[in-house]
Simulated scan of single mutants.
Amino acid sequence: MKNHWIEFLFGRVTVKVTGKGIERFLNVLIRNKLHIWNVKHHGTETVTFKMRLNDAMNLRKFARKSECTLSFLQRDGVPFLLKRTLKNSGFLLGAILFFCLILLLSNVVWGIEIKGAKPATEHQIWKELDKMGVKVGKVQFFIDNVETIQRKLTDHIGALTWVGVELNGTTYHFQVVEKNQPKEPELLSPRNLVAKKKATIVNMYVEKGQPVVMINDQVVPGQLLVSGMIGKEGEEKLIAAKGEIWGETWYKSHVELPLQTKFNVFNGHEQKKYSLLIGKWEIPIWGFEKHKFAKYETEKNSQRIRFLKWELPISVVNETIREQEEIIRIYNNLESVGIAVDMAKKDIKNRLDEDAIIKDEKVLHKTFVNGKVKLDIHFKIIENIAKGQPITKEKSE
């Protein structure tokens, strides 16, 4: 028959009927809308059939009016399964607890490996991991995801150029690349050193080549500083000139700063929510109360649930909602000038090489207009002005 699973859900029984007048008894059941199926004859005075558990409750009142006797041969379906399960609840509870224990242990951090770091850097990494809660014995659901851990380590430890973070089972693997790695020697073709900008030379260090300028000389862009042609006349040879020519250069910067600034900051109030993500369905499990923050920022981290070595299609989602508030910062005229100068310095440093030095700065023009301070600033910079220029055959000839 159709929809056997519905009958299984509500329970069904197999009934044996013996006696005289079995056909009349079956017709009575059908007329009273008791559903029966799989009717089988076993001789002339015995028949078996299946019926719903709810209908079987009313079966005996019809049997009393007949010459038949009833017996129940088999009971199956969800109600009987639940009854048997309750009788063996100890085994069921033990199985559930065992499964939960294995599930929990499969999502605990059991190992952390750091490779490629010097002892001092490795010590810093361990300290940062401890601050982030990445430690042996911690449940992975309460730890940031791999991308966040990688970003925080790179931001907080200056000695790191790059760190790779991989979660393999219950072990975190960190592969570290530190800064100041030895550079491979640069292979250079014959070249001169020329000025890349207008400057007054203040210092020189020539490792290879023939200097053609002196300290306090003023040079212009493209002017020859160190020649790559050395040796006596008629015996010249070409080399790759190498050195540093430090010159005093000049920059102008224009900067504007509002005297009143609005910005958002976190005030320390936050709310956490946890949920299970199964496919596209997200089921809340903790933190049902709706937040009352007017302005806020939401951060979500998801962690896949593991069972032994398998990754289940279920994730624990950790959602943090942080309240923001608007702050209005007002500078007076003196403060605004100092901050504007600092902004200009940072802008200049971003345009220069790392080893360049700001020697002096002078405010050329200062105005306060429409709630802003506007500055024109002149900077004196000490920087390496030399750049390589290949020596062509035409030049050497």
Rank of each mutant, 00 (worst) to 15 (best):
T170D: 07
K115S: 12
G209D: 06
D144M: 12
D144S: 13
Q175S: 15
Q210W: 08
E178T: 10
H123P: 03
T69W: 04
V139Q: 11
K196R: 08
P211I: 09
E207N: 11
L188A: 01
L188I: 01
G116R: 02
Y205E: 07
L129W: 01
L129P: 04
Y205L: 12
L101M: 15
V165Q: 03
V177Q: 15
S106P: 00
H156I: 00
S89Y: 14
E186H: 08
A195C: 09
S71P: 09
L73C: 07
T154C: 00
V176R: 02
R84Q: 03
R75H: 05
T85N: 06
L104Y: 11
C100M: 12
V206Q: 03
H173W: 11
K118N: 10
L160C: 04
M132I: 08
N107S: 11
G209N: 06
A195P: 02
K179D: 13
K208E: 05
D155T: 06
L73G: 05
K131T: 10
G164I: 02
L101Q: 13
R191Q: 02
I112V: 14
H173I: 12
V78A: 15
L129T: 05
Q124W: 01
F80Q: 03
K179H: 14
I102S: 12
V177D: 11
P79A: 01
Q140A: 14
I149M: 04
L93A: 14
E147L: 11
K208I: 05
T154D: 02
V108Q: 08
F72Y: 15
T148I: 12
L73A: 09
K131D: 09
L70Y: 01
K183Q: 15
V109C: 09
Q124H: 01
S89Q: 13
V78E: 07
P79C: 04
Q150P: 02
L105D: 02
Q150R: 04
L103G: 10
L129H: 05
F91Q: 05
G94N: 06
E166G: 13
V134F: 08
Q175F: 11
E166Y: 14
I201P: 01
C100V: 13
T171W: 10
Y172S: 07
K179C: 12
I114E: 03
I143E: 05
L103E: 06
L93Q: 06
F91S: 07
P79L: 02
V78L: 15
L97R: 05
V109N: 00
R84I: 02
P79N: 02
W162Y: 13
I114H: 03
K127D: 11
T121N: 03
F141S: 13
T161N: 14
K208R: 15
W162A: 07
L82S: 03
I102G: 11
E147V: 10
E186L: 14
V206R: 04
A117K: 00
W126Q: 06
G94W: 04
V202M: 10
P119T: 03
A159L: 06
N168C: 12
K152N: 04
T171S: 14
G209C: 07
Q175W: 07
Q140E: 13
I102L: 12
